[in-house]
């Protein structure tokens, strides 16, 4: 199997008023809503999401779910309750797949199967019966595959659906802020005794006097940036350093903190 990097699902739905005359339309609207009934009680609109696609290469491999579980363990925060689309194009339309069992097995890993992409007529019918949505097959073009990670299992590529959390007030002692699935930006000071956590990077446009932990779900590419480093502790993906071990060349300076080959580096930001 292979996890593809991106696949955009775009769906639109518009109510189709076929065969209604103008007069009928207003009575249709009256049926939809309450007494005044000019506003329907729902909204249908098109939107797009980035969803992971699980392409099945060999469903008979006994190691299938074991290896998939390993992959999920590398970035548990990212994969938890993530929507997944199954791609059967590699198997051919005749291959038998037990969709219900597949869906349950994936749910045990925390992955929610929401649909089937492509597939033959019989596969589509069986998938629909098992509650899958049917999504259009990809147009044939060069597929973009993640390069196989032979080395460095500690640094998986995480295609984030990022959202940045911005805090503009000082973060007082005792307060804990966790920016899930994204970066954290603070445009004020962070007091000693405060804790900042983020799945992504942390940016403090002020004095950082508390603790900052970036990449808490395992992203070792996360960094910490601050205007004035007076932190009690900094950490990236679990690798940490205390203030007493930070050199005088970086204390109270503008710095960035990052991981290089498993070691924490703190470097002044000079322009």
């Amino acid at each position: 199997m292979a996890l593809e990097r991106r696949h955009t699902v775009r769906y639109t739905a518009t109510p189709k008023f076929r065969g209604f005359t103008r007069g009928d339309l207003s009575s249709y609207q009256l049926m939809q809503g309450g007494p005044t009934a000019s506003e329907p009680p729902f909204q249908l609109r098109g939107t797009s999401f980035t969803i992971m696609v699980l392409k099945i290469v060999d469903p008979c491999d006994t190691q299938f779910f074991h290896l998939l579980a390993d992959k999920v363990r590398q970035a548990p925060g990212f994969f938890r309750n993530a929507p997944i689309v199954i791609d059967l194009d590699g198997l051919g339309p005749k291959t038998e797949v037990d969709f219900a069992r597949f869906s349950t097995a994936l749910r045990d890993l925390g992955l929610m199967v929401v649909g089937l992409q492509g597939g033959g007529k019989r596969q589509q019918a069986e998938a629909a019966a098992a509650g899958f949505a049917l999504l259009p097959a990809r147009a044939t073009r060069a597929e973009v595959m993640l390069p196989p990670k032979a080395t460095d299992e500690r640094a998986p590529e995480i295609p984030y659906q990022r959202s940045t959390r911005i805090v503009t007030e000082p973060v007082r002692s005792g307060r804990q802020i966790y920016a899930q699935n994204g970066d954290l930006v603070i445009t004020a000071m962070v007091s000693p005794g405060a804790e900042l956590l983020a799945d992504g990077s942390i940016h403090v446009y002020g004095a950082l006097r508390g603790r900052a932990l970036a990449g808490v779900s395992g992203d070792s590419a996360a960094r910490i940036f601050c205007h004035c480093l007076e932190a009690e502790l900094v950490s990236i993906a679990g690798i940490y350093q205390l203030s007493e071990d930070m050199g005088a060349n970086v204390l109270s300076k503008q710095v960035q903190v990052y991981l290089h080959e498993g070691h924490l580096r703190i470097e002044p930001l000079t322009f």
Binding site: E169, V171, R172, S173, G174, R175, S191, P192, G193, A194
Partner: peptide, 13 residues
């Protein structure tokens, strides 16, 4: 000063 800072956080919350 540390306790006052904590108190400010408590009042804000």
């Amino acid at each position: 000063v540390r306790d006052s800072d904590r108190m400010l956080g408590v009042i804000q919350a």
